[in-house]
Simulated scan of single mutants.
Amino acid sequence: MSAPATRQQYGFTLIEILVAMAIFTIIGLASTGVLNSVINSDQLSSERFAKLESLQRAMLTMERDILQIVPRTVRVNSEFVSAVLTGGEDVLESDADGISFVRIGWYNPQMLLPRSTLQAVGYRIQEEQLQRLYGNYVDNVIGYEPKIKTLLTDVEDFRVSFLTDREHLEEPEKWQESYSEKALPLAISITIVSKTFGEIRREFMLANGQ
């Protein structure tokens, strides 16, 4: 018997190779697009989460300070200021509203540090930053400059208002827009307008309010 004929082997044609390369290129481009989308989404989520954390820290800091307000006057440039709390437009050279007061509860373990547990603090807006101003001493000498800590960025507006009459507790439009008195108000409202989170309003009832 004669030997069986061997099958003739063929290679890929140029067209087949080009088609295969085109398919792999399309798959690669699609994979790259998906990967970039995932990376950008993750980066955006991380940035958003970081801003949310900053907002939470800022609100907790303000809440702690405001709820610990005490009716204590301060001395500025060696002169006493009669008001225990000052708030409204242009306070502390703010681009919007500002507020300044004295709070208690500044931790000083066993009074080891050369200061009291009282602290003069203030809040203002400058260059779209919500800033907290503070110092080591309540009464400061001439030339003293407060320390500044930025709590939030991209802040478009900062407003404060004050409640002095309980009858207007549920009527925010009737709260005072400025305050400078020898007694504390009943409540303080803080409104922050953020480019990221929009308008945020918080109201704080004061234990030492009039």
Rank of each mutant, 00 (worst) to 15 (best):
residue 188 I to S: 01
residue 42 D to K: 07
residue 53 E to T: 12
residue 71 P to C: 01
residue 58 A to M: 04
residue 29 L to H: 03
residue 106 W to I: 07
residue 45 S to M: 11
residue 47 E to D: 13
residue 106 W to R: 04
residue 12 F to C: 13
residue 34 V to E: 06
residue 62 M to I: 10
residue 128 E to C: 02
residue 163 L to N: 09
residue 117 T to R: 11
residue 157 D to W: 07
residue 205 M to T: 15
residue 48 R to P: 09
residue 201 R to V: 07
residue 158 F to T: 04
residue 186 L to G: 14
residue 130 L to N: 03
residue 2 S to T: 12
residue 53 E to Y: 14
residue 175 W to E: 12
residue 145 E to W: 03
residue 37 S to K: 06
residue 176 Q to C: 10
residue 59 M to K: 06
residue 103 R to Q: 05
residue 167 E to H: 14
residue 175 W to Q: 01
residue 9 Q to R: 11
residue 114 P to R: 09
residue 124 R to E: 12
residue 15 I to P: 04
residue 151 L to Y: 07
residue 49 F to L: 13
residue 10 Y to R: 08
residue 52 L to F: 08
residue 120 A to E: 09
residue 173 E to Q: 09
residue 113 L to A: 15
residue 178 S to E: 05
residue 163 L to K: 10
residue 166 R to W: 15
residue 50 A to Y: 04
residue 108 N to H: 00
residue 161 S to I: 09
residue 179 Y to R: 02
residue 135 G to A: 08
residue 7 R to D: 15
residue 29 L to M: 15
residue 191 T to V: 11
residue 154 D to M: 13
residue 38 V to Y: 10
residue 127 E to K: 14
residue 68 Q to A: 10
residue 56 Q to C: 06
residue 207 A to K: 08
residue 23 I to S: 12
residue 180 S to H: 05
residue 123 Y to Q: 00
residue 26 I to V: 13
residue 156 E to T: 02
residue 146 P to E: 06
residue 126 Q to R: 14
residue 62 M to L: 10
residue 177 E to T: 06
residue 46 S to V: 08
residue 130 L to H: 01
residue 208 N to Y: 11
residue 27 I to R: 00
residue 193 V to G: 11
residue 21 M to E: 06
residue 70 V to Q: 04
residue 166 R to L: 14
residue 83 A to P: 00
residue 142 I to R: 02
residue 77 N to Y: 05
residue 44 L to N: 13
residue 97 D to T: 10
residue 36 N to P: 12
residue 138 V to C: 08
residue 22 A to I: 09
residue 139 D to L: 01
residue 203 E to D: 06
residue 75 R to Q: 12
residue 85 L to P: 00
residue 204 F to H: 02
residue 88 G to I: 11
residue 180 S to K: 01
residue 187 A to E: 07
residue 87 G to T: 04
residue 70 V to S: 12
residue 191 T to R: 10
residue 169 L to P: 03
residue 172 P to K: 07
residue 118 L to K: 00
residue 145 E to H: 04
residue 98 G to N: 00
residue 16 E to A: 12
residue 118 L to Q: 05
residue 184 L to I: 04
residue 129 Q to G: 04
residue 142 I to K: 00
residue 34 V to L: 10
residue 83 A to Q: 07
residue 2 S to L: 07
residue 139 D to A: 01
residue 27 I to C: 00
residue 105 G to I: 00
residue 6 T to P: 05
residue 18 L to H: 03
residue 53 E to M: 11
residue 100 S to F: 07
residue 185 P to K: 01
residue 169 L to W: 15
residue 72 R to P: 00
residue 186 L to T: 11
residue 104 I to V: 07
residue 6 T to F: 09
residue 171 E to M: 14
residue 120 A to M: 02
residue 208 N to Q: 08
residue 57 R to S: 09
residue 139 D to F: 00
residue 183 A to W: 07
residue 147 K to G: 15
residue 207 A to M: 11
residue 65 D to G: 00
residue 66 I to N: 01
residue 155 V to A: 10
residue 202 R to V: 02
residue 170 E to Q: 14
residue 19 V to K: 03
residue 203 E to Q: 06
residue 75 R to K: 13
residue 12 F to A: 15
residue 18 L to F: 02
residue 185 P to L: 03
residue 117 T to A: 13
